[in-house]
């Protein structure tokens, strides 16, 4: 039955993707991208990948639509007519697609117990998590400890991406800004329903973000998801009260500090492990009991991930908003 549901959702995803490509109105494309994100999250969930689904939910539902609309405010709403040769690109794409489809013939069947994913390292992770780290969520154990190097790399990639976007968009801060027309930067707080809903929900969203952050060892969640949820709460505040007000609450310098500080915290935990006599990112030496040390290390690096993701997402949001005011 799961397969039927999965095929149904994937069919809807395919329809959405085709519609996104075909529409010339970019605003419609942004709306459909929201649906595509929801469909992908539902599909991940169907495949029992709750951590990934939560990441897609946190980013797709809150942040990505806001960022896409921020981009749209800087450009026009209509897609320009393509000038390149259509036949050539179509041929290249179909050739690549055929190669990929041909490659899938060699793959093991969906859910097959003989697949390399089930036989290679996964059994070892499932076995040893209890012994080495003793937390219920194996995903967090793999992400934070067994594969800590990869996650450190991911955090640095997020940080670098944020720096890249800031380089592209920031320009001269404050320079060339024309005085905003009266009433343009008040946000939605003058409207009753957004104001009431927002004020009621922002504390709960922040609370939920903290829950996701610190509950990652027991259920789906962790730094990436929590960072996106907390950023969504602040973005909601910015939409309600105006973006300037949100910058007064958390200034740009603090956001940059968060972005860099999270990555430094992660790396610092690794260096601390070295100083205490272990390997880089070996948390076992952080406490007297190796299992306790592992748990402490995972908690610390997840905090670092959360700080970086929040800082980078909000920096990007403010960069777009500031650019919109200058234009």
């Amino acid at each position: 039955m799961t397969v039927v549901f999965g095929i149904f959702l994937l069919t809807l995803l395919l329809i959405t993707a085709v519609a996104i490509v075909r529409t010339k109105n970019l605003f419609v494309a942004v709306m459909l991208m929201g649906i595509a994100s929801l469909l992908i999250a539902a599909n991940f969930f169907l495949l029992d990948a709750a951590d990934v689904a939560l990441t897609e939910a946190a980013v797709g539902a809150g942040i990505s639509t806001v960022l896409f609309l921020g981009t749209l405010a800087l450009t026009t709403e209509r897609e320009r007519a393509p000038t390149s040769r259509k036949i050539l690109s179509f041929a290249v794409v179909s050739a690549a697609a055929l190669v990929v489809i041909y490659a899938t013939f060699d793959k093991p069947r969906f859910g097959s117990p003989d697949a390399p994913t089930q036989t290679h390292v996964a059994p070892w992770y499932l076995d040893k998590t209890r012994e080495f780290i003793d937390i219920p969520n194996v995903v967090t154990a793999v992400l934070g400890s067994f594969r800590g190097y990869d996650t450190l790399g991911e955090v640095f990639v997020v940080f670098a991406a944020g720096i890249g976007v800031l380089f592209l968009l920031a320009g001269a801060p404050g320079g060339g800004k024309r005085p905003a027309p009266p009433g343009s930067d008040v946000g939605l707080s003058r409207h009753l329903i957004p104001r009431v809903v927002g004020r009621l929900l922002i504390p709960f969203i922040l609370l939920f973000g903290l829950y996701v952050q610190f509950h990652g060892e027991y259920g789906p969640g962790g730094g990436f998801q929590a960072g996106a949820i907390v950023a969504a709460a602040i973005v909601l505040y910015a939409l309600l009260e105006g973006e300037e007000k949100a910058l007064q609450v958390i200034p740009r310098r603090v956001l940059l500090g968060l972005s860099a500080g999270g990555a430094i915290l992660y790396g610092g935990v690794g260096v601390a492990g070295m100083l205490l006599g272990g390997n880089f990112l070996d948390y076992s030496v952080l406490a007297d009991d190796p299992v306790k040390g592992q748990q402490t290390g995972i908690l610390l690096i997840e905090a670092g991930v959360g700080l970086t993701v929040t800082g980078v997402l909000l920096s990007i949001f403010h960069a777009f908003a500031a650019r919109g005011r200058q234009a």
Binding site: A61, F204, I205, V235
Partner: peptide
């Protein structure tokens, strides 16, 4: 909790 933020945007 956060799905409506897109609509607000």
């Amino acid at each position: 909790l956060i799905n409506f933020i897109g609509v607000f945007a």
